[in-house]
Design a protein around this nucleic acid. Structure first.
Lengths: 142, 142
DNA sequence: GAGCCGTCGCGAATAATTCTCAACAGCGAT
DNA sequence: ATCGCTGTTGAGAATTATTCGCGACGGCTC
């Protein structure tokens, strides 16, 4: 629960930047944050942490399995808390809203497809793009 | 068949860079090429075409539906000829080899998932990562 | 409490891609 | 074939996202 212990049990030194970054993710109203997002939130709370450090911390927390990285929009990575349960994303092309889901049928088929090529599946990334109800309505009238 | 006509029917001016880039894709031994890849191949055949132009042409050919863009490795986009038949990719983490496939079960489920959230699915991207038979064997003894 | 080593902040360095702008080249009308 | 309008090109500067290098600093073990 406390960032302090989580860091320690991950074998990472307990430092201010790491604690702060974790807290940001745990209290943010949005689930997905980019390095820049995190950096600005830190700046907005007197914490004087460099952008390079934010990048470093994000990478470390990802390696420690506490955060998961995603590259949706191509050209900018976002992170989210990794609660252990894998999921995929459905992103609105209009407003950027994202939904998370997991579909066992798809998961099973992915593994089957990989095996049919003789591959050992290790990971995958999938993102669906479309318009959410609101944006679809807006586009309908224009 | 000829780049010339294809460009014309796409409503694009027939220019040397566009013809050359299309030819590169049609004769390349690899299906996926990055902007840099295309640029080097052009340089290797006396064609003196700038990198900025390569980027512009790739974007235009994509908009014209002649090429499809993919961003696998996060941080570098690759293009491939768009023959109209959508497909997904299975990429080897060891050697980078890629296989193409399409699985109707997955396609159907994706649409169903989007609809269950009230979304109108417009597009999606999916890439599976694993080890091909060769690389899996190498890793086994390593 | 001292010191070792990992960590930090900062600015410079990369990498991929886009923009700016003047020179130029298709293409339709002449 | 020629002319000119407009879209296109090349070169380099500019942007964006991210990483490096380095001297200063701060956890943590003893």
């Amino acid at each position: 629960m406390h960032a302090h212990e989580d860091l320690k049990s991950a074998g990472l030194k307990v430092t201010l930047p790491r604690i702060k970054v974790l807290e940001i993710f745990r209290t943010a109203e949005t689930r997905h944050l980019s390095a820049e997002d995190v950096y600005h939130r830190l700046a907005g709370q007197q914490a004087d942490i460099g952008l390079a450090t934010v990048y470093r911390v994000l990478t470390q927390l990802e390696e420690a399995g506490m955060l998961a990285r995603n590259s949706f929009n191509a050209g900018k990575a976002v992170y989210e808390l990794d609660e252990g349960k894998h999921h995929d994303h459905l992103i609105c092309l209009g407003c950027g809203r994202t939904e998370e889901f997991i579909d066992q049928t798809i998961e099973k088929r992915q593994k089957a497809v990989a095996e049919s090529f003789g591959y050992t599946l290790r990971d995958h990334q999938m993102a669906l793009y479309g318009y959410c109800p609101d944006c679809a309505a807006k586009r309908a009238k224009g």
